[in-house]
Design a protein around this nucleic acid. Structure first.
Length: 629
RNA sequence: GCUGGAGUAGCGCAGUCGGUAGCGCAACUGAUUCGUAAUCAGUAGGUCGGGGGUUCAAGUCCCCCCUCCAGCUCCA
């Protein structure tokens, strides 16, 4: 049996054992739903009368062990729909699953011993004893909605790690531990890169060291884009709702926007309101049921439909449209590329935030390019070449995904077809046919898109870059350009970002590099350690020489001993630590400690060391130069 | 928003049955002037996330809220 199949059968069988154990512990009223295998094990969704916590894990694991030891026989049966329904009477999820099975499909059930039956396609082990040697451990319990729908039952999902042997399980737990050690929240705090405060959830405070990196990323993006003909703009952070009405955000995105009340909408109320909808998610739903609410005397309420209501921008696009609209445009001007790095705000439901990966305030390396349809192909090829250069600089690989026309598309189907064909031509040429994924029908209603997923040092994938065609906003804003024949035509807008959000990207590279950044990106690039106070003068001279060459250097002039000084810079993961004493001062050299090795370069001339630094800044070198040759 | 966990000095943590809030690192002061990851001694630092309640007494028990974490759902 090949490994894939082996894992599938065993993990899936363990899910059944898990369900059986949970039912034996918590009683027959447990509703069990589905228990698929996943990447590192399996899970099972339950509706359990009690709430399961970490304290219960051991009992469940032991119950599973006990069940396996019973060496029960597993049997497969084919049953009719009615028989199946009878077998699972009282199990509402199973009943729903059975009802949803297509007519004529063979329904199979598996029994484990006499007292447990599950609806399942299989295959499974023949006898529980085959599971005797597999290693498993409850990973966690978490909430999950029945069929992923937040309006339906909220269930408890119990996750299991499952591997064929104890060694493999151990190996996996080690990898998890490794990921934990790379956690950007932990490293970000240790390296003084950023912080959060409860008064601004999901909005990072960038500390000096972190902001330095942030600026380097911006600088790199700006340099690269300037070479590719981009022009940068900046636009208001808050706009009147009029703009959001035109762009469609007021109708489709309002619950994710931070509102800025004006003066007009404030009302003093002292009345009974017949129908108040309390759940913000249902505000736009026609059949949301309101309840009568009595407002207290002189309550202050706000009517967001007032003419002077403003909102913080969640996206840059509408203002880019406005910028384009300022003058008339000729086809000769296109493509026009407006890049911007403005601050965006998106209100998230609580529980959605996650360090820098998901925040409420962020910047993107955003751009809106206005092109003629005939220019799409060439423009996107250029965007991909930018992405190539940026990702390569961080030493990460990526793959592309194309999402095509959804059912509720907007615009001319012919335009869609031509645009999708153009995107496919580019991707075929770049990655070879089949060298990228196609998600049919997954595009936005306003245009097809290409997503770029990067793969980090642990093999985890992250969505960063995105290139989206947009036929809708030019329409909403009435954008035009004058074509060669004198007619007025509508440009196509290309939205694109390569880092994605700077915040998320920094989170990813913190984990990718484990805080040991390439030289050009390091908050401080060189730490200088004078051995004794009498060496401070020479240290100052070295510091000045480096600063003059644009190198970010920090020097420890305190009276602590050199070991402590070295330790401090090592903990900050400065790429180079210079140790300066009598010898160096006399010879005008530096002794260099290279990060990540115990290697010391002795007697490097100051001039040579400055050159090494300058070269790495200029070339955005990924690896540290660890030789003075 | 949902499920489960957590919040005690700047950071990492301990705090038992409800009975005077502690340890390590960091900080500060003094001594030490040192050749590659922690010199020694002393000092200071707390609305125990916020609010309410129970009690003679609350970090500890109860209720509400906030924030964070692991997931679910949604997303850059």
């Amino acid at each position: 049996m090949d490994k894939e199949r082996f894992l599938g059968v065993y993990r899936h069988s363990l899910a059944h054992i898990l369900a059986k154990a949970v039912i034996e512990i918590y009683g027959k009223e447990v509703q069990y739903a589905i228990g698929p295998q996943i990447e590192d094990g399996c899970y099972y969704d339950f509706l359990i009368p009690a709430s399961v916590g970490e304290a219960d894990f051991k009992a469940i694991e032991e119950k599973m062990r006990e069940i396996i030891k019973r060496r029960e026989v597993w049997s497969r049966e084919e049953v009719s729909r009615d028989e199946a329904k009878k077998l699972f009477a009282g199990q509402k999820f199973k009943t729903e699953l059975i009802e949803d099975l297509p007519e004529g499909e063979t329904i199979t059930v598996y029994r484990t011993g006499d007292d447990f039956i599950d609806l399942c396609r299989g295959p499974h082990v023949d006898n529980s004893q085959e599971l005797m040697s597999v290693a498993y451990q409850i990973r966690s319990v978490s909430g999950a909605y029945w069929r992923g729908d937040e309006k339906r039952d909220s269930m408890q999902r119990i996750y299991l790690y499952a591997y064929p042997t104890k060694e493999e399980l151990k190996e996996h737990l080690k990898l998890i531990q490794e990921a934990l050690e790379r956690d950007h929240k932990k490293i970000g705090s240790e390296l003084n890169l950023f912080m959060f405060d409860e008064t601004a959830p999901g909005m990072p405070y960038w500390l000096p060291r972190g902001w330095q990196m942030y600026q380097e990323l911006l600088k790199f993006s700006r340099e690269l884009q300037a070479r590719h003909g981009y022009t940068e703009i900046s636009a208001p952070l808050i706009n009147n709702k009029k703009l959001w009405l035109i762009s469609g955000h007021w109708a489709h995105y309002i619950n994710n926007m931070f509102m800025v009340p004006g003066i007009e909408g404030w009302l003093k109320a002292d009345a009974e309101i017949p129908s108040v909808v309390g759940d913000v998610r249902e505000l736009d739903s026609a059949d949301a049921e309101g309840v009568p609410v009595m407002l207290g005397k002189h309550s202050v309420i706000y009517n967001r439909e007032a003419v002077d209501t403003m909102a913080a921008k969640p996206m840059n696009c509408p203002n880019a449209m406005m910028t384009y609209k300022r003058t008339v445009h000729s086809y000769k001007e296109l493509p026009i590329r407006y890049s911007e790095y403005d601050v965006l705000h998106r209100k998230e439901k609580s529980g959605q935030m996650n360090g820098l990966f998901r925040v409420q305030e962020f910047r993107q390396d955003d751009d809106h390019t206005f092109v003629m349809e005939s220019q799409i192909e060439e423009e996107i090829a250029d965007i991909i070449s930018i992405a190539d250069e940026i990702y390569a600089t961080f030493g990460v690989t990526y793959r592309a995904e194309l999402s095509t026309r959804p059912e509720d598309f907007m615009g001319d189907i012919e335009v869609w077809n031509r645009a999708e064909a153009a995107l496919k031509r580019i991707l075929d040429k770049k990655y070879g046919e089949g060298g990228y994924e196609i998600n049919e029908g997954d595009g936005a209603f306003y245009g097809p898109k290409i997503d770029l997923q990067i793969k980090d040092a642990l093999g985890r994938e992250w969505q960063c870059g995105t290139v989206q065609l947009d036929f809708q906003l030019p329409h909403n804003f009435g954008l035009t350009y004058q074509a060669a024949d004198g007619s007025m035509q509508m440009p196509v807008v290309i939205h694109r970002a390569i880092y994605g959000s700077l915040e998320r990207f920094i989170g990813i590279i913190i984990e990718n590099f484990k805080g040991a950044f390439p030289f050009w990106l390091s908050p401080f690039q060189v730490g200088v350690v004078p051995i004794r106070e009498e060496h401070n003068a020479y240290a100052g001279q070295v510091e000045e020489a480096l600063k003059a060459a644009g190198v970010r250097v920090e020097t420890d002039y305190t009276d602590s001993n050199m070991k402590e000084k070295i330790k401090r810079f090592k903990l900050m993961k400065d790429p180079y630590i210079l140790v300066l004493g009598d010898r160096e001062a006399a010879e005008q050299t530096v002794s260099v400690n290279v990060r990540g090795s115990n290697r010391q370069l002795q007697g490097v001339s100051l001039e040579r060391f400055v050159d090494m630094c300058v070269q790495q800044n200029r070339e955005h070198t990924l690896e540290l130069i660890d030789s003075a040759q």
